[in-house]
């Protein structure tokens, strides 16, 4: 089993480090280069969200197994302001910061599983998975 990789997100260049770590692990796990790109892009979207809304947080990427299936899990954690309306935050084109990014709905579209847990004033945790085909 490969060890989890944790990347602190505090500055913009950390976004690049996080997606590179994700791509690297996905490659090691045998994901196709297309899937590696989808995973790296999804990480980029959630990492940017951390910077925009919470200013700092972390991304943890790790290998997961479910019976015969192998996958990758990406967790994006922050202790930012939290999301008041989760449903709205997952809607396309919605942004309280008027940012250019697609953010959460974008990341959701690129991964197989996507779960969002958020508490106002406490923080946000996005857990997303992709299974190797």
């Amino acid at each position: 089993m490969t060890a989890d990789v944790k990347i602190q997100i505090e500055r913009e260049i950390d976004i690049i480090a996080a997606r590179q770590a994700g791509r690297q692990l996905a490659g090691k796990l045998g994901f196709s280069s297309t899937d590696q790109t989808l995973i790296a892009t999804a990480i980029s979207e959630v990492a940017r969200n951390i910077l925009i809304y919470a200013h700092h947080g972390e991304i943890v990427v790790g290998a997961i197994e479910d019976g015969p299936r192998t996958g990758i899990q990406v967790i994006a954690n922050d202790e930012g302001p939290g999301i008041e309306n989760v449903e709205l935050a997952l809607r396309d084109g919605y942004s309280t910061k008027n940012s250019l990014g697609l953010g959460l709905p974008g990341a959701r579209r690129l991964m197989d599983d996507f779960a969002l847990a958020s508490e106002v004033g406490r923080g946000t945790r996005v857990t997303m998975k992709k299974w190797r085909r």
């Binding site: 791509r23 790296a40 892009t41 980029s44 940017r48 250019l100 990014g101 697609l102 953010g103 974008g106």
Partner: peptide, 11 residues
């Protein structure tokens, strides 16, 4: 570029 996320594309 190996990744073009939504921010980069729109920029």
């Amino acid at each position: 570029l190996d990744v073009l996320d939504s921010f980069a594309t729109r920029t």
